[in-house]
Amino acid sequence: MLYRSLFPRDLFAELDRLQREFASTTALDASPGIRGTGHGGYPALNVGSTPTSVEIMAFAPGMEPSGIDVQLDRGVLTIAGERSNPLPDSDDKTTLHLNERFGGRFRRVVSLPEDIDPSAVNARYRDGVLHISIGRREARQPRRIDVQ
């Protein structure tokens, strides 16, 4: 059983925990958390776009690039893999009090806009962040037309 103080040190963390508990008991929760984070899963994603590309950042620290599988099929990007969660050896003298680090298989799926170019994909992993850049087709990019 976890010990919970009657007077939490971090009020926002306690409110976030209460919101997660409430969300796990109801199917109505579709809003972001109290700190503005989404309820996506692991790895956390940032998805944005520029006029020339779609940019995806997946935050997956402690992984090897070879352990991350990235696939693009018919406008759907899939990021999958497995993350180990080494725990202390369990014996009579070892007790695990808290384990918040995610370990296990993961899979995230992102639907992409129709104007992406599947041949213009670049993925790189550095310092725990997977950065995927997908170019847009030339015909769909806005262009300025000079009036004569």
Rank of each mutant, 00 (worst) to 15 (best):
S90W: 12
R105Y: 13
S90F: 15
E82I: 01
T52R: 12
A27I: 13
S84V: 12
S111P: 02
A120Y: 08
A27H: 12
S53R: 07
L77G: 01
P43D: 00
F59A: 10
H39C: 07
L87F: 08
G48Q: 02
K93Y: 14
P61F: 10
P113R: 05
S53M: 01
E82C: 05
G41D: 03
K93E: 15
T52E: 12
L77R: 01
A60Q: 04
A58Q: 02
R105H: 09
Y42P: 01
G81W: 08
P88R: 08
G40V: 00
K93T: 11
T94N: 06
G36H: 03
P118C: 03
S24I: 08
I116G: 08
V70H: 06
E64S: 12
D69M: 14
R124G: 10
P118E: 09
L72C: 02
E55G: 02
T95W: 14
R83M: 05
P32Y: 06
D92H: 13
T94C: 04
I116N: 05
G41A: 02
E55A: 11
N122H: 11
E55Y: 03
D69Y: 08
L45F: 08
P51Q: 03
S53D: 12
P65Q: 06
A58P: 10
R108C: 00
R107T: 12
V109Q: 09
R107Q: 10
A123C: 06
L72G: 02
D115C: 06
M57W: 00
R74I: 03
A58H: 11
A80S: 15
R107E: 15
T94F: 08
D73M: 13
S31W: 05
I68V: 14
G36E: 09
A27R: 13
L96M: 12
L28I: 05
E64P: 00
E114S: 12
T26D: 07
G103N: 11
H39A: 07
V70E: 09
P88C: 05
A123F: 06
S84M: 11
D89R: 14
D89M: 10
L45K: 02
G33D: 14
